[in-house]
């Protein structure tokens, strides 16, 4: 009999627990499965300015990119502060998967064709899988088709080839702030003299600060390790804004680099900020969905 009372008590207790339960959050009755939340939009575009960002195109997205640099501002009024000249790269990038993209382009600077591949190896995420950084690997090749300076010399096809390898290691620290470092190696098959290195090692730094939902301030600096470049070459420094409107991203910037591909802006930057050798330029990107 005593036992029975206990059970009655328990029954009442469990019933009342049930009633209380209904006043709670009903959804809390379900065990929530944790999902992986991948960090997106660390940068607005696949380029910070010249430097490739850790972002890649999504699968099936085609990005037609027009990159343009005016002449040096130091040209003064006679050159309309550089507006008389222009250097341009027209290119197309395409996402084969969400983590693997390819691209090619043609630069007016030394009439160069280039092609590249970029693979995201690690993606920053929270939730079920925590990953503090995004890591992408990049490889590119360029062919300079400008007629050789000395046509009488034997000019092999391989003389025109350039290679670049980069790692993009970065993190979106907050909604507004992302930072990336890019260890880089540029290989030139042919250099002017023997004492100039064929391989150039450099470390790129890039970041962005969002000023509003659609505008961000970007900066990048590429530090070339000492004793690799000939006299007269400088490190590349660029500062600019990303302005995003729907399917377009406009990037407006100032840079001392003329070329817009790795072998050029890392190893062949001749402009000096201090002397006003600064190009005003822009990248326009329009994304199309081919999926």
């Amino acid at each position: 009999m005593k036992m029975y009372k206990y059970f009655l008590f328990f029954l009442l207790l469990s019933a009342s627990v049930n009633l209380y339960g209904q006043e709670d959050d009903l959804l809390s009755l379900l065990d929530e499965e944790e999902t992986i939340n991948y960090t997106t939009a660390s940068f607005k575009a696949t380029r910070i300015i010249n430097l490739h960002s850790l972002e890649s195109m999504s699968a099936g997205e085609l990005d037609i990119k027009i990159q343009h640099r005016f002449g040096f501002i130091s040209g003064g009024a006679y050159e309309l502060w550089g507006l008389d000249q222009s250097t341009i790269r027209i290119g197309a990038d395409y996402g084969i998967t969400d983590c693997f993209m390819i691209g090619f382009g043609r630069s007016s600077y030394e009439k160069t064709y280039d092609g590249f591949m970029k693979l995201k190896v690690l993606r920053q995420s929270t939730g079920a899988r925590k990953m503090p950084i995004t890591l992408a690997l990049f490889s590119s090749m360029a062919i300079k088709t400008l007629k050789p300076s000395d046509p009488d010399r034997e000019n092999y096809f391989s003389n025109k080839l350039y290679y670049a390898f980069q790692m993009m290691l970065g993190r979106k620290f907050s909604d507004a702030f992302s930072l990336q470092i890019s260890p880089s190696l540029v290989h030139r098959n042919l250099v002017a003299t023997e004492d100039i290195a064929n391989d150039v090692l450099a470390m790129g730094f890039g970041g962005r600060i969002k000023l509003s939902k659609r505008v961000s301030l970007n900066a990048e600096y590429i530090y070339v390790l000492p004793d690799q470049l000939a006299e007269g070459y400088h490190n590349s420094l660029s500062i600019g804004f990303d302005i995003e409107t729907g399917g377009h991203v406009f990037q407006l910037h100032f840079s001392n680099s003329t070329s817009m591909i790795e072998k050029g802006f890392i190893a062949e930057t001749v402009g000096e900020w201090g002397k006003g050798d600064i190009h005003f330029g822009f990248n326009i990107s329009r994304v199309f969905n081919l999926k």
Partner: peptide
């Protein structure tokens, strides 16, 4: 999306993660 209904009271709840919405275009 998660949802729970209690038919003893008529209470209904829904919850959904915004990040889980899939669009045709990634952008």
């Amino acid at each position: 999306a998660s949802t729970v209904i209690d038919f003893t009271t008529g209470a209904i709840e829904w919850g959904v993660l915004i990040q889980g919405f899939k669009f045709e275009k990634a952008l």
